[in-house]
């Protein structure tokens, strides 16, 4: 499944932050988004994942092909590691809980409540969720926050495994995950004149009655 983004413009708080973003991400490939803080990486990823409407342009792959993971892991502190994963496996209709636990090195922690995990362990559990979705396109927003070097390497392996099975990864990160991926520098797509996303606000120019 190919993810194609065409002349996409995205807005945050009514102001267009990126415009004219186009790329294609074929199956089995990875694409890393780079750019300074505040340029709109998160906004772009949320738009691609279907969480907010595009200000202009189009995203070709349906939202039902995409698994999205952001800063917040969506973990429930009072559920155990297995319960947290089993919930998402049931929602996505897969049975990959054991596999995901093994892949993210969580088997020893499986019966522990998520409240008693360290920040890095929580993050690993949050990323394990991607494996139970069974979806081909992963959209990841800074997935390695609070992971140590060993865990980063572990997650790099998981991502490589996903790509070798024909999955693709769109990722915003500052860390080298050790995966083969093209890099898309977002700087050139910064919306020039701070153009307003809505035609209404754009209509406020010049003289005014």
């Amino acid at each position: 499944m190919e993810l194609r983004v065409d002349q996409l413009a995205v807005a945050r708080g009514g102001v267009t932050v990126l415009e004219g973003v186009s790329f294609a991400l074929p199956a089995g490939r990875g694409l890393v988004l780079r750019g300074p803080n505040g340029i709109g990486k998160t906004t772009l990823l949320r738009t691609v994942a279907g969480l907010q409407p595009a200000a202009a342009g189009a995203v070709s792959a349906g939202a039902e092909a995409i698994a999205y993971a952001a800063h917040a892991d969506g973990l429930k502190a009072t559920l155990t590691v297995t319960e947290n994963l089993a919930f998402w496996a049931a929602v996505y209709g897969t049975a990959a809980v054991e596999y995901a636990l093994a892949q993210m090195n969580l088997l020893d922690l499986r019966d522990r409540q998520a409240a008693n995990l360290s920040a890095g362990q929580k993050r690993r559990l949050g990323l394990a969720r991607l494996l139970v979705t069974g979806r081909p396109i992963w959209v990841l927003d800074e997935p390695t926050v609070s992971l140590d070097t060993a865990s980063v390497a572990l997650f790099g392996d998981v991502v490589r495994g996903h790509m070798s099975r024909g999955g693709s990864v769109l990722i915003a990160t500052h860390i080298d995950l050790g995966i083969e991926a093209e890099v898309l520098e977002l700087g050139p797509y910064r919306a020039r004149d701070g153009s307003q996303s809505s035609a209404f606000d754009a209509a406020f120019g010049g003289d005014f009655a």
């Binding site: 102001v15 004149d193 701070g194 307003q196 209404f200 406020f204």
Partner: peptide, 14 residues
């Protein structure tokens, strides 16, 4: 007031 907000946002963006 909406116009004011829009102009301020534009100014912030530079």
């Amino acid at each position: 007031s909406r116009r004011l907000g829009a102009l301020l946002a534009r100014e912030r963006m530079g």
